[in-house]
Amino acid sequence: MPESSERGALTEAVFYILLSLFKPLHGYGIMQFVQEISNNRVVLGPGTLYGAINTLLEKGWIQLLYSDSVSRKKEYQITTIGRFMVENEINRLDELLSNARAILGGGNSVQNI
């Protein structure tokens, strides 16, 4: 189980970086994946991405691969702990969404108010 301080919300950058690494990717690939999946809404700054990757490596949520032998760029992939963290975050986001939708009544009652 994670420490209690690790049960809070993941940042948007971390959540998307973890999602991108269900397949091995290098830094530039992560940035492109996140930009595409968010329809250009989330553009990770290289400094922010670099810091996040290092922290995630330290925590063991992602790991380094050396498979890209042609370009010799470092590739990363999510670990079991990382997958667990993503699942936890999905449950947390589900709770937020279902509570919000229940209060807003699925979006229809907003117009009725």
Partner: peptide, 9 residues
């Protein structure tokens, strides 16, 4: 092109 994209960094 921005080096940092979140408040923390």
């Amino acid at each position: 092109f921005d080096i940092y994209s979140d408040i923390d960094s």
